[in-house]
Design a protein around this nucleic acid. Structure first.
Length: 598
RNA sequence: GGUUGUGUAGCUCAAUUGGAUAGAGCAUCUGACUACGAAUCAGAAGGUUUAAGGUUCGACUCCUUACACGACCA
């Protein structure tokens, strides 16, 4: 397709020379797909040429079209509507495009084309005091998918998970556990480890709030009550004890985090995401402190009278930012400085992507500007993939108000919905129980992933529970269904001994839906490139849907096995096969799998 | 208050990065299973792209102002 486009461009330039004796400036030589209400496949917008050529847009279109039709065999016809020159491509050419496409496997890298070669994608990055929720799912699916998309360009990609395993929030869970846990373990409670830790975090908040209420009743002002409540004081003390390395505190910390990691691993496995490298905040914050020290020595950071360390970013349009507290304890950004350094030491990336919600936009700007102040070579390579929060029909998710959608629960629900729908259809006879379970999982998760990924990442989105388990219309299972159908076609073709490799040279014209299908198939490489450029799985999601839709149209309009022309029949089987492979590959980039039947 | 993002059909989202008559799905209505799989296909209806200006051959897209909602910084 790229070749076809390029040769059309060259032909257009030759035409402009031949007809007008002028060059078409490269900037105005972009071919775009012709809108489907007009005849043709490629469109040149001629408005931009009117000045240079001193002719009207229609006149230019007519002249160029006429010349191409006469001299360029690939162009079988043309039409001009206002300033749009629509070029029709000969069907023989589309057959050639398809043959060329088939020469490469659907999984072949599409080329990095000026994009990054060596990328670290950091995503997930959970806190260890509570289980994952719906927001994390968007994060995880996005991060995994972006990594896969970049891999599909041919880049080397490392998936990293920075675990926020230290800080006051963990201490809160630990304190509550000491008070109310009575030696409970995930096994004894029958709870996943992350849910157990989350339970104690909630308990802490509950009792803490009661203490505040009590103090306020005794006449203490709210501000002071919040700080002086006994539980909070204990948590603060524990944080200091942790930083001092007190063995008992460290032991409890290790134990509870261990439970949480087991829980997270189970969830990650269940939702089909993975990581090549883990970082732990507890191991990077000290390196961050070294970077702060470095900045002080270089004179790019400064100290206030109380000893706290700051960076002045007003020249960058930002503000002054605290890097280290007066008591020497670190803040969020302290460890970020350390982690960025560590990642660079480990992987020497030319692009470091952070998948983080858009509420952190300012923070990420500060991080990048601060690293630039330190003169770090990797500062410019930092890229924040900023995604919008997920809202519920009832409004924003708030953990305090218990409106958080738990990830494990949600996954269970979508799988159950997929199971119910599949049983209702009753088309899965012959599958073993294990295969069925795998299928329900594939479909349920497919629905959920597609639902969360089809929306432009940077946009805030609404999560509607009913729509998220829907299997019809613009959904993951719609696309998976097309694949299952194609699989059935291929099984039957194999049974009938139909050869996909047959000679198609006798075919002189294509059906409209066949032509559309070839065009859709040929777009793949540029779609992946665009998705990589924009770090947007939504681009792939839309493409997979368009491809499936084009196939379903084709499927409804032409018959494969009742076609008597051997060449045509084999072409249709070959088209089907290729569509199936490209659907599979596209969905793989979204972290989705495809069934052979459903 | 400052910075910033978003605003498109009843609802959820697109729009090839400034191009043609703004497209899909859901919901509503009408057709198509004795056909290779109807989780599908074909069709109808649904729009002053928040508002008002501006830039130009051309604006959902860029600029200005206002409004609404969100986020961040104090």
């Amino acid at each position: 397709m790229q070749q076809l486009e390029n040769s059309l461009k060259t032909a257009l330039q030759t035409a402009a020379q031949a007809v007008f004796g002028l060059d078409i400036p490269a900037a105005s030589l972009t071919l775009q797909p012709t809108r489907k209400e007009f005849a043709g496949s490629f469109t040149l917008v001629t408005f931009p040429l009117t000045k240079a050529f001193g002719k009207g847009p229609e006149q230019i279109g007519q002249a160029l079209g006429e010349w191409l039709k006469a001299h360029e065999p690939r162009v079988s016809g043309y039409n001009v509507v206002k300033g749009f020159l629509n070029l029709e491509i000969a069907d023989a050419e589309w057959l050639a495009v398809f043959a060329q496409l088939r020469a490469q496997p659907a999984t072949a890298p599409v080329g990095t084309a000026g994009g990054p070669q060596n990328v670290v994608v950091e995503y997930s990055s959970p806190n260890t005091n509570k289980p994952l929720h719906l927001g994390h799912l968007r994060n995880n699916f996005l991060g995994y998918s972006v990594a896969e998309i970049l891999k599909a360009t041919g880049a080397t990609v490392t998936k990293a998970n920075l675990v926020n395993d230290r800080g006051i929030h963990i201490c809160k869970s630990m304190i509550a556990y000491q008070h109310f846990g009575q030696g409970e373990t995930p096994a004894s409670a029958g709870l996943k480890g992350d849910h157990l830790a989350g339970k104690y975090y909630v308990l802490f908040e509950k009792h803490y709030r009661e203490e505040i209420k009590q103090l306020e009743a005794e006449g203490v002002t709210p501000d002071i009550a919040k700080k002086s409540a006994p539980l909070m004081a204990e948590a603060q003390q524990m944080l200091q004890a942790w930083e001092a390395g007190e063995p008992a505190v460290k032991a409890l910390w290790s134990q509870m985090n261990g439970w949480v990691y087991e829980g997270f691993d189970e969830t990650y496995k269940n939702i089909g995401v993975d990581f090549d490298q883990y970082y732990y905040e507890s191991e990077t914050y000290l390196l961050g402190k070294e970077r702060v020290e470095e900045g002080l020595q270089k004179g790019v950071f400064f100290q206030k009278e109380n000893g706290s360390v700051w960076v002045d970013l007003q020249a960058e349009g930002l503000d002054e930012k605290l890097l280290l507290r007066a008591d020497g304890t670190s803040v969020y950004i302290t460890q970020d400085l350390g982690t960025a350094e560590l990642k660079y030491q480990d992987f020497g990336y030319d692009s470091s992507i952070y998948v983080i919600a858009d509420e952190q936009n300012y923070h990420m700007q500060v991080l990048q500007a601060t690293l630039a102040k330190l003169g770090k070579p990797y500062a410019a390579a930092i890229h924040h993939l900023s995604y919008g929060m997920v809202d519920l029909p009832s409004g924003k998710m708030k953990s305090r108000e218990g409106t958080v959608v738990d990830a494990d629960e949600l996954v269970r629900d979508v799988i159950a919905a997929a199971k119910a729908a599949t049983l209702e259809k009753g088309k899965t006879e012959g599958l073993s129980d294990a295969e069925l379970e795998e299928l329900y999982h594939m479909l349920g998760l497919g629905a959920l992933k597609y639902y969360l990924l089809k929306v432009d990442p940077k946009k805030r989105m609404l999560f509607n529970p009913e729509e998220s388990v829907s299997l019809e219309g613009h959904t993951g299972p719609f696309i998976q269904y097309s694949h299952a159908r194609i699989a059935a076609i291929r099984r039957k073709a194999a049974e009938l001994g139909i050869d996909e490799q047959a000679d198609w040279s006798s075919i002189t014209s294509l059906e409209g839906t066949e032509r559309e299908l070839v065009q859709e198939l040929a777009r793949y490489a540029s779609v992946v490139a665009e998705a990589a450029r924009n770090l947007s799985p939504a681009v792939i999601a839309q493409y997979a849907y368009d491809l499936a839709k084009a196939y379903n149209r084709f499927y409804a309009e032409v018959s494969i096995f009742q076609e008597t022309d051997v060449a045509k029949r084999s072409l249709r089987v070959a088209l089907s096969a290729r569509v199936g492979e490209q659907i599979k590959q596209s969905l793989k980039l979204l972290g989705m799998q495809v069934p052979e039947r459903m």
